[in-house]
Simulated scan of single mutants.
Amino acid sequence: MSETRIDRRFKALKAEGRAAFVTYVMAGDPDYQSALAIVRGLPAAGADIIEVGLPFTDPMADGPAIQQAGLRALAGGMTLKKTLHLISEFREDDDDTPIVLMGYYNPIYSYGVDRFLSDATAAGVDGLIVVDLPSEEDRELCLPARAAGLNFIRLATPTTDDKRLPKVLANSSGFLYYVSIAGTTGAAAPSPRDVATALTRIRKTTDLPIAVGFGLRTGAQAAEIAKIADGAVVGTALVEQVALGSDNADAVKRVLGLAREISAGIRSVKKT
């Protein structure tokens, strides 16, 4: 594959001596324009890579906060086509920040894989995380995505043993997303000691950067992960700020405010 924005960003961060701040927000939550304002504001708030969630009716890996965010987006008329349009609008002002679409295969399958990859590439998408497509199904989307120049990012979990890990890593690119806890998004806080042990084992098998997510809510927690990982992923805590907002404008401010706080924690950790 040719070098992608994701590859370039991790290379630059390694030279800078710090971990990536990877944010997750739901497309269309609380509405299209507010979601666009959030995505546009995240780079200035410290986000290095932005994961944009695809709203789906049956998000089996997600906890209540992200499930509710997806339902709010769907109720507001958000679709995969509109999500790609949101990213293309973001790209009008930002050609550098990597964008990863994260979600489930059903909406992509319904849209049509070839059409989706063509439109996603044109919109400025850099990578995909499709949580319900295992490596055994790489011909469905992973291999076509790679051929289209998109990184296909896999998830590894505490239950991914040494026998399974090479299969997870097969055809993966961009980075590996390590799910720090067993369970759904936002379920509990990770143990830095357990994460460090897992990453030591995984790094024996891959040179891909490893970003750690699930359960990170504060700058202090993200800083602890930044000491041992190549990136810290925060999603549920940001998505929760939307529901806590008194109105849509306040929701945008709350999300970006928390992003700045967490970014400061990550940036306080310098690696040698």
Rank of each mutant, 00 (worst) to 15 (best):
L74F: 05
S268R: 12
D95F: 09
S110H: 14
Q67V: 15
D95M: 11
N248V: 03
D162F: 04
I266N: 09
T79F: 13
F116S: 11
A61V: 04
G127H: 04
Q68D: 15
Q67E: 14
G174Q: 03
R91L: 12
A222Q: 14
R115E: 13
D247G: 07
V130F: 00
D114V: 09
A145D: 01
A75I: 08
D7M: 10
T272F: 08
A259E: 08
A222P: 11
E140H: 11
I181H: 02
L176A: 11
G265S: 02
G245W: 03
A145E: 06
L141Y: 07
S172W: 00
G77F: 10
A47V: 05
Y24S: 01
L244A: 14
R91T: 02
R260W: 12
E240I: 01
D161I: 02
G17W: 11
F56C: 12
P98N: 12
I181C: 02
I153Y: 01
G76Q: 05
R267S: 09
V22Q: 03
L71H: 14
S135V: 02
P43Y: 08
D93S: 14
S135A: 08
L258G: 08
V22G: 05
V130D: 02
T23I: 01
K167A: 06
G265L: 04
K204S: 12
V25T: 07
K271T: 11
A196I: 01
D161V: 00
G219M: 12
S191F: 14
A222F: 15
P98Q: 10
G77K: 07
A170R: 10
A44S: 13
R40A: 06
A73F: 14
